[in-house]
Design a protein around this nucleic acid. Structure first.
Lengths: 125, 125
DNA sequence: TGTCATTCAATGACGTGTCATATAAATTAG
DNA sequence: CTAATTTATATGACACGTCATTGAATGACA
């Protein structure tokens, strides 16, 4: 039945959940209200900003986030429509896509990242 | 800009996210396929099972989970329709609701909890 | 006691994630 | 070199969560 170890696992799990939800909600609301992008959008921007130096992105990005391929595709689509990112098709393999920040995207990321880090600090302490 | 502390925060955050998503997805799929309930449904069952001893629940449950009030209301609704839980209105305060496991709910919870704990163990190690 | 504010739960509109599948390109087999 | 398979991304149907609001009951207080 409910061994002490079980209880401890459940505790640990709930603690992760709580931290995750609280932090995600805080960041999401802040970014949404100040920059009009959600947390997931920011996270893609952040990943793209991190690797300002090529490779047929989309695919590799998928390996660096727990997001689904289809979720990623839609987020990238929104970012593209918002003019924050551009998809450039890759010559070597025309199935793949390069992602790049636009100037607007880079500028927004710079600002939003500050807020993001601040909220992480506040919530993960 | 990106202080080392920032990077460390981001790392920590991604690690939490990954753990959360991986674990949640694993549990969700297992429960869905074996018991036809999702992770959130199970979590409510689990909380109700834990407090088999009254109080006008709904409200208090809300304090023990990061779920929104409205999310809870909908999950409880599904559980009710599935015959796993029953809502009984509270005499003292007729706005509030008592929640109780039905026999089916108790039985399902007993089985599902085993799976749940096992997957937690596997994923949080 | 009658009004006003507050609290508990439910609901509708809406956005976003997921699964399954589609499309298109590249790779492998025969 | 064609057919079958696999890989990269997009998309449509659908489920679920969120926000804002509603309905109903309670509490406060004049």
């Amino acid at each position: 039945m409910a061994t002490p170890q079980d209880r401890q696992l459940v505790e640990q799990w709930r603690s992760i959940q709580t931290t995750y939800f609280r932090t995600a909600a805080a960041i999401d609301r802040a970014l949404e209200s100040r920059f009009n992008i959600g947390l997931t959008e920011f996270e893609i921007l952040d990943l793209v900003a991190e690797s300002e130096d090529a490779a047929c992105r989309m695919k590799q990005l998928g390996e660096r986030t727990p997001m689904t391929q289809s979720a990623m595709s839609k987020v990238v689509d929104r970012l593209d429509k918002a003019g924050l990112i551009s998809r450039r098709s890759c010559q070597d393999d025309r199935r793949s896509l390069f992602l790049e920040l636009t100037d607007a995207g880079r500028a927004l990321h710079r600002e939003a990242a500050i807020e993001h880090r601040a909220l992480l600090k506040e919530n993960l302490a």
